[in-house]
Nucleic acid binder design. Structure first.
Lengths: 260, 260
DNA sequence: CTTGTTTATGTTGTGCACAACAACAGCAGG
DNA sequence: CCTGCTGTTGTTGTGCACAACATAAACAAG
C-alpha cells in the first residue's frame, strides 16, 4: 500500500492546541477524502479504525463518525465483522454521475453567480501558472491535486450553497477513476502529457471567461470539457480492458482519460 | 409539542426479531425524518438523545449515527453542551434549494428515464384516487403525506441513482416549510382546500403524461408546478409577516403555499 | 483426497461511564 | 436595582470494554 508515500495535508497526530470537535472532524474527514481520491488508499484497501484512531491521536469513536460520512458519500463501505474497505469504482457505474455533473456544470454559471473580485481572479491566474509549470514537469499526483483545487475555485463562483455541496460530492465520487484507469494503461507518460495539455487548455479558456466576467460561458466550457473527458475515459478503459493499450500510439484527442 | 399525536410509521421500541444493524439504522432514520417533516418535531425543538434511545429501544450510540446523518442533511443541528435542535427554516433561505429543485425536476425525464410498468402506473392511479378523496376531506397532515409518497413515486421514474438521492435530499430540506407557513396563516382551511385542488391538478396532469409514457412531459409539468408552488409560498410568507393575512380573501391562484 | 464442521482470530457495532462544555439560577458587591 | 461572578445542572462528545458477526484455518469424517 502507498500509505507512507506522503501526507502533506494530513499532519498525523497533530496536538491541535485549541481545536474544537467540529474542526477536528472536518480536518480528519478532508484528509481521508483527499487520500482516497489520490489513491493513497486504493480501492479495495481495508481501513482499520484502530489504526486511523492512533494516527490521528483520537479514539475510535470520532473516527467512526468520519467513516460514516465517507460511507454516505460512497467512498467507503463498512461491513460488520469484515472491515471498512475503500469502494471500487468502474467506468460504467460512473456514467450516471457524469451525466449529472454535465448538467450541473452549466448551473454554476446560471444559479446565483457571484462575480469574482480581484483576489479570486488572481487565484485563477495562479492556478493557470501552476498548470503551465506542470506541462514542463508532468506529475500525475500533482495533476490530480491541481485539478482538485481548480474544481473548488470553480465551485466558489456560484452563491447557491446546495449546488456547491452537491457538485463537490459528485466530484469526489468520480475523480478517483482517472488515476485508477491511467495506472493501468501502458502509455502512461504520453497520456499524462496529453491530458495535462488538454487540462491547460480548459483552464486557460475558463480563466479568460472569468476575466471578462462571463460566468455562463464558464459553465458551457466546463460542461463540454467534463463531457469530453468522460468520453476519453471510456475509450481508455475500453482499451485497457481489451489489453492492446501498449501496442498503439495514442493521439492527442483520444489518448486517454483525465480527471474532471 | 405534538410528539404524542401519532407515529403511524414509527412503531416505537419494536422488538424487531431479526433486524440487522443497517435495517435498524434506516428505520430510525426514516422515522425521525418523517416526523421532522410532518412537524411532529417542530423547528426549534430539542431532541434528547437519551429519550430517543429509550423510545427506539437502543443505546445512545446508534441514535447518534442517525442524528449525525440528519445533521448532514440539514434537518438537525447539534451543539456541544447545548442540545440537538431541529433546524429552523425560512422561505428566503430556501430560495436556492428551490431553484435547484426546479432544474433537477426536468432532469428526471431526461436522464435514464425508465418507462413505468403496469404495476407502477397502478400506483399512480391509486395516489390520484387518494388525492380525490382528500378534496372532499381536507387534512393538512394527510396532504403532506400524500405529497411525500407522490414525490417518491416520481423519483422512481429515473434510473439515475445519484439524481434520485440528491432530489430526495433536497425535497426533505424544503417540504417542511409549507406546514410551517400554513399554520401561521389565518385562512388555514380555505388555503388548504385551494392547495389540494392545485395539487390534484398536478397529479392528474402527471398521471396522464405517465399513462402515455411521456416522461419528458412529466418533468416539464413538475418543474412548472414546483416553481409556481414556491411563488405562492413566498407570497403567503410575505402576507403572514405583514400580518394582514386574515383580512383578505385568498384566490385560487395566489391563495397560499403548498408542499412540493 | 474431499467435504462438512468446528474453532480461532480479527473486525465492526453497541452500551456505558466519564470528560468537555454551555446555559442558568443564585448571590455578593456596587 | 443592576452587574458580574460562581456553583449547579443538563447536554453532547469521547474513550473503552464487550457483544455480534464474518472469515479462514484446523480438523475430523467419509
Amino acid at each position: 500500500m502507498t500509505r507512507d508515500a506522503g501526507h502533506e495535508d494530513a499532519p498525523a497526530a497533530r496536538p491541535a492546541f485549541d481545536e474544537g470537535a467540529r474542526e477536528r472532524f472536518d480536518r480528519i474527514y478532508r484528509a481521508l477524502r483527499t487520500r482516497i481520491c489520490l489513491l493513497d488508499h486504493p480501492p479495495g484497501e481495508r481501513l482499520r479504525e484502530e489504526d486511523l484512531a492512533e494516527e490521528f491521536g483520537v479514539s475510535r469513536t470520532p473516527i467512526r463518525r468520519v467513516l460514516v460520512k465517507l460511507e454516505a458519500e460512497g467512498l467507503l463501505r463498512s461491513m460488520h465483522g469484515v472491515g471498512t474497505i475503500v469502494t471500487d469504482i468502474e467506468v460504467g457505474e460512473l456514467e450516471q454521475v457524469y451525466q449529472l455533473r454535465v448538467e450541473l456544470a452549466e448551473l454554476i454559471g446560471k444559479l446565483s453567480p457571484v462575480q469574482p473580485g480581484e483576489a479570486k481572479r488572481a487565484e485563477f491566474r495562479m492556478l493557470l501558472a501552476r498548470c503551465e509549470n506542470l506541462i514542463s514537469n508532468p506529475d500525475a499526483r500533482e495533476f490530480a491535486r491541481i485539478n482538485m483545487e481548480f474544481f473548488h475555485l470553480l465551485n466558489s463562483l456560484t452563491g447557491n450553497e446546495p449546488l456547491r455541496e452537491i457538485s463537490e460530492r459528485l466530484y469526489y465520487q468520480t475523480t478517483r477513476i482517472w488515476l485508477k484507469t491511467a495506472s493501468r494503461l501502458g502509455h502512461y507518460q504520453e497520456m499524462l502529457k496529453d491530458e495535462i495539455l488538454i487540462f491547460h487548455r480548459e483552464v486557460s479558456d475558463i480563466v479568460a471567461a472569468v476575466e471578462i466576467g462571463d460566468l455562463e460561458a464558464v459553465g458551457h466550457i466546463r460542461r463540454s470539457h467534463i463531457s469530453m473527458s468522460f468520453q476519453r475515459l471510456r475509450i481508455g478503459a475500453h482499451r485497457a480492458l481489451a489489453g492492446h493499450d501498449a501496442s498503439e500510439k495514442p493521439s492527442a484527442v483520444s489518448g486517454g482519460p483525465g480527471p474532471r
